[in-house]
């Protein structure tokens, strides 16, 4: 930090801009991958939601099984593109918070479940649902938090649109909060 202070706010801005880019690409791509795995198997998603036992209405489970994967894909694509970065990051963090809540509830009740986080695939956490899945979602949320706090940052559509609006090359970071 002291090095950044010596170099001034411009250096700090560039660093944050890179951080945002990394956060966007990691969280966005993982959500696109997870969404694509789920969108081809709505029955599996419905079974996974049903297994958690938090929704007892068949219609709601069915709607969630179809809407959730598309939400993940859309938010992931927007995050990777850096378009509406903060809104997309918010959606991803809210989804992750809901997943963590459901996982903790399942662990608390001693349920033996598959996560269903990436459809049938077990990407980071093998075995049954457990604390690994909570940590996994926490790390993903940390990546998604970067564009939420910093903004679109480097190589984002948000920055491009902002520079077009203002008529000059454009800032490294969006200056306007939650735009």
């Amino acid at each position: 930090m002291s090095d950044m202070r010596r170099r001034g706010p411009q250096y700090t801005g560039r660093f944050a801009s890179w951080l945002s880019l990394i956060g966007r690409l990691v969280a966005g791509q993982i959500f696109i991958f997870a969404g694509l795995n789920k969108v081809v198997d709505p029955q599996g998603v419905a079974d996974a939601i049903n297994g958690f036992g938090l929704i007892n209405n068949d219609t709601l489970i069915t709607v969630a099984a179809y809407v959730m994967p598309w939400t993940e894909i859309l938010a992931g694509v927007l995050l990777v593109a850096g378009l509406f970065s903060r809104a997309a990051a918010t959606i991803i963090i809210l989804l992750l918070a809901a997943f963590v809540g459901a996982i903790l509830n399942a662990i608390d009740q001693g349920k033996v479940l598959d996560c269903g986080c990436f459809g049938d695939l077990k990407l980071f956490c093998t075995g049954q649902l457990g604390n690994c899945n909570v940590v996994q979602n926490g790390i993903l949320a940390a990546f998604a938090l970067l564009p939420l706090v910093i903004g679109g940052g480097r190589a984002s559509a948000d920055a491009l649109l902002q520079s077009d609006d203002s008529g000059f090359e454009g800032p490294e970071i969006e200056e306007e909060a939650f735009d």
């Binding site: 419905a46 809407v67 939400t71 809104a87």
Partner: peptide
Amino acid sequence: KLVGIVVVASAAGVTHMLLGPQIKL
């Protein structure tokens, strides 16, 4: 923007639901 993302994703999901296979629980 937040609401817009949710609306577009919901529209895609509902369209998929209407055109896709029926879920049997």
